[in-house]
């Protein structure tokens, strides 16, 4: 499992990017993280939802109860305008960081 510190710092970036294209609910987000990281990263309930609520408080994502026909109502999260700005900034930061790390440690691009 990935180091807890790394995971914490990147969690926000992950969630923001996952709701960039369309609104998703909590379980969907956690499944996506698991599959796209090929099992490396896993968020359980206790970690995911507090994070979602924090992002919502800051106004970067917006949660809304939506009822689709034939289903129970679920809470969907989508990216807000403010969130979009933050996402772009965080992406840049992350890219610069990775590039710098590579140069220092002599890692090659995977």
């Amino acid at each position: 499992m990935l180091d807890r510190e790394l995971k914490k710092g990147s969690a926000e970036l992950m969630i923001l990017s996952l709701v960039e294209d369309r609104a998703r609910h909590g379980y969907e987000i956690s499944k996506l993280i698991e599959t796209r990281s090929r099992g490396t990263l896993r968020f359980n309930v206790a970690s995911l939802y507090p994070l979602l609520y924090r992002l919502e408080d800051r106004g970067w994502i917006q949660g809304r109860w939506t009822e689709k026909s034939g289903q129970r109502r679920r809470r969907y999260y989508k990216l807000t305008a403010a969130g979009r700005k933050v996402l772009s900034a965080q992406r840049n930061t992350w890219q610069s960081f990775v590039a710098a790390m590579s140069r220092i440690t002599g890692l090659e691009n995977a």
């Binding site: 359980n44 309930v45 206790a46 970690s47 939802y49 507090p50 609520y53 924090r54 408080d57």
Partner: peptide, 19 residues
């Protein structure tokens, strides 16, 4: 077990829900 993890849920939510 996801819930059990050292009562993380309550702890984290407490920080948020205080407002």
């Amino acid at each position: 077990a996801e819930l059990e993890e050292r009562d993380l849920l309550a702890t984290r939510l407490r920080k948020l829900e205080r407002q």
